[in-house]
């Protein structure tokens, strides 16, 4: 559901001014949490960023669970696995993936807390659960955060947490707000009943800034930036989960340094012999000029994003890979580079 929007004269309103926080250390903070939600507008690279964070955490030896919220999501694919189901399955060393399924979580929930046996799919009762779990928005959203909180609390047979880190590839922007806020909405809906204390517990997990964090994803384009800033403001206003960083995907690389540019001019206007040695230089120059103009446009949007939100912006360059593990690895190494603490 889209929240009401206030009419604005200009499409990009002037934002508060402050010094943009540095990205250094943001990644370490994320990897140190128990739950990380990755949220943003559709097509901004949520899934890849979620997969990259999972890979980076797994590399430090942590047991990671990736949670796919969208029914058509492909977090498993981004981790090099063919698909995910409701049962966590290993996708990479130390990384498992599960696909969240409202009906299944509902059954699991009933079974765990009320000892209600699993119902056959064919019975009318199961369909009634379906109705409640998928049609009535509160409980459905609740099952998303509920399952995540439930996994956070899961312990192995030695009593240790089953997962060190849970990374959630969230629903597209509008809906994620409802999901993050589901526990609170439920508290209003369910005044009595046994579910109340559990709902309160789930809300505590989600809004505990030591345990839980959220990362935004954006693109350096006008609408995605406007919407990311809005989403950021709404999440902050909701005072639920703590926003730690924003990953700005598909940044156009900065133009070549001045020395290269001077050289380019000399090569382009050089004598016949020089031009014969580098015959494609004119074409290269024109392409680099296009890239430079695109960079300027993208940089202006990046600037708007940086001054519009109060969290560090981590830039990931435009990549030539196809989706899947290759892209995830490239994004992971780019995240590492961008967030490495600058040595004094």
């Amino acid at each position: 559901m889209c929240p009401p929007r206030c009419p604005r004269r200009s499409i990009l309103p002037p934002r508060r001014r402050h010094r943009p926080p540095s990205a250094a250390g943001a990644l370490d903070e994320l990897v140190g949490k128990r739950i990380v939600f990755v949220a943003g507008k559709g097509g901004t690279g949520k899934t890849t960023v979620a997969a990259a964070i999972a890979l980076l955490a797994a590399k430090t030896g942590k047991q990671v669970l990736g949670v796919e919220v969208e029914p058509k999501g492909d977090l498993a694919g981004a981790l090099g696995s063919s698909g995910a189901s409701f049962k966590p399955a290993l996708a990479q060393a130390n990384v498992s993936v599960l696909a969240l399924h409202p009906e299944e979580s509902f059954h699991e929930y009933l079974n765990t807390f009320f000892k209600v046996p699993r119902l056959a799919r064919a019975t009318p009762l199961a369909k009634v659960f379906d109705f409640i779990a998928t049609a009535v928005p509160g409980p459905r959203d609740m099952l998303v955060v509920g399952k995540v909180a439930f996994e956070e609390r899961r312990r192995d047979d030695k009593g240790r947490p089953a997962w060190d880190l849970i990374v959630v590839d969230c629903s597209a922007s509008g809906h994620v707000l409802a999901q993050l806020n589901a526990a609170r909405s439920m508290m209003q809906l369910v005044r009595g009943g046994m579910i109340r204390s559990q709902v309160e517990w789930i809300d505590q997990v989600i809004s505990d800034a030591r345990r839980t964090a959220l990362v935004l994803t954006a693109l350096p384009e006008e609408m995605p930036v406007v919407e990311t800033v809005e989403l950021h403001d709404q999440i902050v206003k909701q005072r639920g989960v703590r926003v730690v960083a924003c990953v700005l995907n598909r940044m156009i690389r900065a133009p070549v340094p001045p020395a290269s540019r001077r050289l380019l001019a000399q090569l382009t206007t050089g004598d016949a012999e020089v031009r014969a040695r580098v015959p494609g230089i004119g074409s290269i120059g024109a392409d680099l000029e296009l890239s430079e103009r695109l960079h300027r446009t993208a940089e202006a949007q990046a600037q708007r994003l940086r001054s519009g939100i109060a969290v560090p912006v981590i830039e990931v360059p435009l990549l030539a890979t196809r989706t899947g593990l290759a892209t995830t690895r490239a994004v992971a190494s780019s995240l590492t580079e961008q967030t490495a603490a600058v040595s004094p």
């Binding site: 690389r253 133009p255 070549v256 340094p257 020395a259 290269s260 001077r262 050289l263 380019l264 290269i284 392409d287 680099l288 890239s291 360059p317 435009l318 990549l319 030539a320 890979t321 196809r322």
Partner: peptide
């Protein structure tokens, strides 16, 4: 290095265009 930077920037875009 100056030559290299020209090439690298273009080759990256080339790879994207090829894909």
């Amino acid at each position: 290095d100056a030559l290299h930077a020209l090439a690298v920037n273009w080759l990256e875009l080339h790879a994207i265009a090829e894909r």
